[in-house]
Design a binder for these strands. Structure first.
Lengths: 188, 188
DNA sequence: TGTAGTCTGAGACTGAGTCTCAGTGCAAGC
DNA sequence: GCTTGCACTGAGACTCAGTCTCAGACTACA
C-alpha cells in the first residue's frame, strides 16, 4: 500500500480547500494574547504567527522543527503520515517528529485524521483551513480532500445534532469518509 | 481510556440497529451454493448458516473459534475491540483471535470500524445488520451505533456520489463519525 | 550573566498486530 | 471405516508505529 502521493506534489489532490489566509483575522483575534498589541495587518494571513501564539499560550515555543512540520502540512494540502514526514524532512529525527505532532495537536494547530486502515495522518486544524471531508482509496491508501456544498453540510449538521441529542451525546465534530477506489486504481 | 463498556451489556448502546434476521432470506439467497438445496425456512434467520456459507465459498470452515467471535459481535451490538474479545473470550488465544478476525473480514462477514483514535474495532458487516453510523466519545472511547433517518441517508448518498464523481473516484461505502462526549463524560 | 525550564536527538521500550511452525482436526474420496 | 491432503490451531517469536527516558543544548526572563 503506497503512501498518499509524492509530497508536495499537489496534483494528487484537486481539492478546493485553501488556507484561510483571508479569514485568519477572525481566527487570530481569538488567539490574541490578552495584552499583546499587534495591528490587524500584521495579524492577517500570518499562519505562523497563529502557530506561535497558540504554542505560547500553552507555554511552548514555535521551534524550527515544529515550524517545518507546519510548513509541510501547508504545502501538502492533504493529510500527511509519519512516513511522509520522514520522506520529506529526512533530517528531522523520528522521536522529534512524533513529539512535534503531539505538541502541535495539543496546541490546536493540527488534528489527527482517520485514514482507511492505515497509520495515523495529520492535517492542519479546520479553523486554519476549512471544513472538508476525505476520499479514501482502499487500494492504494491515497487520501483526497473534498469540500462539500454548504447546503449539504447544513443538512449534516442538523442530522448530527439530532442523532447525538437522542443519545445525550454532545457532538464536537464530525467526519464523513468516503471509501472506494481513486481514479488511478479505478481505471485498472 | 476505557473500553466501550462491559460486554455484552447492551445498556451502553441504545441503538435501534437490529440483526437482519427477517431479511436474511434475500442475503442468503446470494450465499446459496450453486447446486445446494435448502428450503427457504431453513435459510431464514440463519446468520450462522450465512457465516458458514461465506467461509466455505473461500474454502474455509466455520470453526468454533470463528463462531465464538461472531456470537460475541452479535451480542455486543456495537463495535468490539481486541481487548473486548480477550475479556469476554478469555480462552481464545490472542493469535487465533487476530486470525479469526482477519478471516471473517476476508469472507465478508465482519468489517473494521475506525474508532476515535484507538485500536481496531470490528462489527458485523452491514448487509447482516443495517446501515448505521457511530458516535465516538473522545474521552472514554465508547462507540455507539446510530441509525440515521432514510431521508438523510438519501441526501448523503447523493452528496457522496457527487463529491466522488468530481474526482473520478469510485465510491464503495461511506462512514459518518460523530465525535464528542458521551452522556456519561458529558455530565462530568 | 545566571537560572529555570523548554527542547532536542538517540535510543530504549511498549504493545497491537503479524508471522512461523509443529501438531491437530476435518472433510472428501475411496 | 480408513486414508490423505489441507485447513486450522496455540504458543511464542517477530515487527514496527508510537511512546518514553535522559543527558545535554537552547531559550527567555530577571
Amino acid at each position: 500500500m503506497t503512501d498518499t502521493g509524492t509530497l508536495p506534489t499537489a496534483t494528487t489532490t484537486t481539492s478546493t480547500r485553501r488556507l484561510r489566509t483571508g479569514q485568519l483575522r477572525t481566527g487570530i483575534a481569538a488567539d490574541r494574547d490578552s495584552g499583546s498589541v499587534m495591528s490587524a495587518d500584521e495579524l492577517a494571513g500570518d499562519l505562523h504567527g497563529v502557530a506561535e501564539r497558540r504554542l505560547r499560550r500553552v507555554d511552548q515555543r514555535y521551534t524550527s522543527g515544529r515550524r517545518a512540520i507546519v510548513e509541510l502540512l501547508v504545502s501538502a494540502r492533504h493529510p500527511v503520515s509519519i512516513s511522509d514526514i520522514a520522506e520529506h524532512l529526512p533530517d528531522l529525527p523520528r522521536s522529534s517528529a512524533y513529539r512535534h505532532l503531539t505538541d502541535l495537536q495539543a496546541a490546536g494547530l493540527i488534528r489527527r485524521v482517520a485514514a482507511s486502515d492505515e497509520f495515523t495522518r495529520f492535517e492542519l486544524a479546520e479553523d486554519l483551513t476549512e471544513h472538508h471531508h476525505h476520499l479514501l482509496c482502499v487500494n492504494c491508501g491515497k487520501v483526497t480532500d473534498v469540500t462539500p456544498p454548504a447546503g449539504f453540510e447544513h443538512q449534516v449538521a442538523g442530522a448530527v445534532s439530532d442523532l447525538a441529542a437522542a443519545q445525550g451525546f454532545q457532538p464536537q465534530s464530525h467526519r464523513l469518509d468516503i471509501l472506494g477506489l481513486c481514479a488511478d486504481c479505478h481505471e485498472r
